[in-house]
């Protein structure tokens, strides 16, 4: 328990069949002096092995459970090991490890519990197809209203979370579609946690397959709208979070 005492930040990387990039990503994060935990989400390739060799702590899920479950596993690890802040980051090289510090800094400056790395906030062009962008705007609007601050990129997977919200994530992080990005943001904000957005450099993925064909975009649209309709009216069932909100 105590070997990480004094180290506050851990980077959590969920990875499913990302052998092409995971080693470099782990190395890049470690070059910035931060410990990395890779959650190998039932990969069939060498992802876990390569991450381990690159110096990451590896949590191996025996079967593929999806990003939400992989993240919760990472958050459980972070909470159990006593970390104060966990930064989630993709294994495909889209998220610039240099920006991790920017997220943490924004968290400290704004006294935030959850910081969303905003991929539209930088000059670096990031092309997202039409329908997908449209849905993202709707999600961003709903998220902004909940958070009481402007959130441009509600589905960004580049974010930092700090205790006590980190402990909440470790206990009950939603695994269903968009739950791990959009829903968790709205639920956190509604429970009284401070959610902010900060610009982050996000690049085109360096490996793996991007799921953004026309059909995939259309599926995203339908499912996202369904999530908005189904979840927005509802409050989170386990609601003791309100008591543990920011004590500043």
């Amino acid at each position: 328990m105590s070997d990480h005492a004094g180290r506050e930040v851990v980077v959590v990387i969920p990875a499913h069949d990302e052998a092409a990039t995971v080693g470099d990503v782990v190395q890049a994060v470690r070059d910035h002096g931060m410990p990395v935990v890779v959650v190998d989400d039932g990969s069939t390739d060498e992802t876990g092995e390569l991450a381990l060799r690159a110096g990451a702590t590896v949590l191996r899920l025996p079967i593929n459970l999806g990003v939400g479950a992989a993240l919760r596993c990472g958050f459980r690890y972070a909470a159990e090991r006593g970390y104060e802040i966990a930064v989630q980051c993709d294994a495909d090289g889209q998220h610039d490890p240099a920006s991790v510090q920017a997220l943490v800094q924004a968290m400290r400056d704004e006294h935030a519990h959850l910081v969303i790395g905003n991929r539209f906030g930088t000059s670096d062009s990031f092309d997202i197809p039409g329908p997908r962008r449209f849905v993202m705007r709707i999600l961003a609007r709903v998220a902004s209203r909940s958070a009481g601050t402007r959130i441009d990129d509600a589905t960004s997977g580049f974010r930092a979370v700090r205790t006590p919200l980190l402990q909440e994530f470790a206990d009950r992080y939603p695994a269903q579609y968009l739950g791990d990005t959009f829903e968790v943001l709205v639920a956190s904000a509604r429970a009284g946690y401070r959610v902010v957005s900060t610009p982050a450099l996000i690049r085109e993925r360096q490996g793996g397959v991007r799921s953004a064909g026309t059909a995939a975009s259309l599926a995203f649209l339908v499912r996202a709208l369904l999530v908005v309709v189904l979840r927005i009216g509802t409050r989170y069932r386990p609601a003791p979070i309100a008591d543990k909100r920011l004590g500043v």
């Binding site: 459970l65 459980r76 690890y77």
Partner: peptide, 16 residues
């Protein structure tokens, strides 16, 4: 599914 997810996570943490 939720139980399976929980068990898998605990397994991964224990293995580490």
């Amino acid at each position: 599914t939720e139980m399976l997810r929980d068990v898998c996570e605990s397994y991964a943490l224990a293995e580490e």
